[in-house]
Design a protein around this nucleic acid. Sequence first.
RNA 1: GGACCCGUGGCUCAGUUGGUAGAGCGUCUCAUUUACACUGAGAAGGUCAGAGGUUCGAAUCCUCUCGGGUCCACCA
Length: 732
Amino acid sequence: MDKVYNHKDVEEKIYKVWEEKGYFKPEVNPKGKPYCIILPPPNANAPLHFGHAMYVVEDVLIRYHRMLGNAALWLPGADHAGFETQFVFEKKLQKEGKSRFDFDRNTLYKMIWDFVQENRGGMESQLRRLGFSLDWSRKKFTLDQDIIKIAYQTFKKLYDEGFIYRGDRLVNYCTKCGTSFSDLEVNHKEQKDPFYYIKYGPFVLATVRPETKFGDTAVAINPEDKRYQKWVGKEIEVQGVNGKFKVKVIADDLIDPNFGTGVAKVTPAHDMKDFEIGKKHNLDIVQVIGFDGKLNEKTGKYQGLYVRQARKAVAEDMQKMGLIEKIDENYIHTIETCYKCETTIEPMLLPQWFVKMERLAKTAIDVLKKGEIKFHPQRFEKTYLDFLENIRDWNISRQIVWGIRIPAWKNSKTGEWVITEGEAPKGESWKQDEDTFDTWFSSAQWPFSTLMANCDCDGSGGFFDRFYPTSVMETGYDILRWWVARMVMVGIYRTGKVPFRNVVLHGLVNDPYGKKMSKSKGNAINPLELVDQYGADAVRFALIYGNATGNDQALSYPKLDATRKFTNKLWNMGRFIEMNRTSAFAKASTVAKALADKSADKQNSIEELLELAKNNNDREMIEKTKQLTNEITKHLESYNFNYAAESLYEFAWHEFADKYIEDIKDRLNPESYIILNTLYLTLLKLLHPFMPFVTEEIYQRFKFGESVMIDKWPAFAVAKALADKSAGKPSL
RNA sequence: GGACCCGUGGCUCAGUUGGUAGAGCGUCUCAUUUACACUGAGAAGGUCAGAGGUUCGAAUCCUCUCGGGUCCACCA
């Protein structure tokens, strides 16, 4: 063995062998209990960011369970990331002086498809570099035909059972991106805007949006408000910039009598709350802003102006006409913006496909309360419940082409809608809806759709039957609502079972100064650069060590240095043991020599070793290793990865190397050597889920090519040894 | 407006059911050329943000305050 461990000589070579030998497949343990994690599918089009490196937690779990003898399946995939990807692609088009409107739907789709295919391999090879033991033979893409088919079936089932409606409802619309969004995709931002107190018939009312006045169809007050009660039910005449108009005065308790003047104009077509009021009171809905973000023909001379321009123009004209009583210039309120381009969201009346969420949410709440699903750390249950208990219907239509086109056909003659599993209805005059599904609609089905779309090639039944519900869903807490909660709802709906038993959430990896990494800020660090520099094992260990599950962490170079040194320490412990092999047996009997050849590397149970050990320090070390094994097992079972990593680090370095090896140096004999060797191999096994490469490299050198990856977890070995013993098999 | 997280030695963070404060890096002293200088032995360094409470005992539980961050929210 070389003096220094060099990860560059080891990692790619080992990964290749693992993959070629099929070690990533659950078939490695054909009779094992199924254990399954579905990888949160990264965006097929984008390189990995640091969040993805946190999937190391999943690899730790998978490797641990594989060593326990489970049929461990970690299923990879890629997400088409509908809107995200189309957004990136449109930017590229823009640079070339083109726009999406220059192409028809199919051409555009094909162009994005090719664009994604070009970039797709990058993400997969990056996951390999991190050592992730993913079963690549089972990988899926959200736009695979079989996955699409399953999404269609789910949509149809939802439709047939009354969960889907086409809503004439206000949606969050970004006039720049040209699509609507779900409520989750909208950001809220505080902003200072002029607050106009305008004369409105007999009233004065406050508004930030005088330009929507053309769409007013009522004036509202609180029913308890004595000041204005006499006007309720009456029609009033209002002087506007385009002449006089009449509106009704209504009473609604959504109006806060203490806000502004206690009077509000109601513009159902352009305000979420006004829309609610309008529905209750059967008000007309008059749209005055178009999908291009400009005022329309109903606004007279203001037609063609963008909202901001129109606001200014209308306010100035009102000022001239003496219709403004005062302007509060320091009014701070919250506006909605597009999470992608930051344009102010315009609530728009646009028929969209909605999923009724209330009943679905209830099932997802129930499974948590019944304990069928558990969160680690538990505090995230609160976020989950908060979302589900206040859920609103989910707009799943997007006005983009990159995605799964909604399988809904409208009859142009009758206006009737037909939902299918993808095939066009028979007969003429059917036209398919132009919209595609929200990406999260297909992502929400990922645990079951990936498993349904995988057949089990040994003929023992479908993957779905075998691996669903999956064991663990591990992802960043930032997509708990977007993804985890929706997977639970849709999973239960479609299959009758929870999609996973445990949810493990990891935190964000921030830059070394604790700031969120982002491409636009220029502080994003590519995880692969660190893998090059420190080795995958060190990067993996650094992400787990010293950071409680679910907490954010700042990337730390000193920590990476420490973990890299740790890989070298492990290597040199091995080097010491290897170098002393011959000398330890030099004066030994023939039996001992035989052990030196092969049997010294044999898996021994702790109990067998204790029988062998005559030296008290050896006996103590055996006990300590046994304790460590139990401790690590316990920590992994409770998802306390950092405890496990810390215990391993402390034990390996300061107990095993600093004390035990130093002590044993001067008294090596065949017995003590066997103990040393066995305990060291045990340690490698315990470390393997965390540091797969260095442990594998050493293990294979010690065990003549046998792989630690598919060897058994020490606790298992202990139990097995005990069983063998009671069955009368000889020890050693 | 609501919720959550964080505030522990110079820095980054652990601290698992409450039981005399821990790690890595950094600093200082010493040792050794050793399996490993990507080393070993040892040292200094913390009123655990602040205040109050529960308790025999609180970094840990409760209340409040201050500071940093995140998420949710239809006040026109």
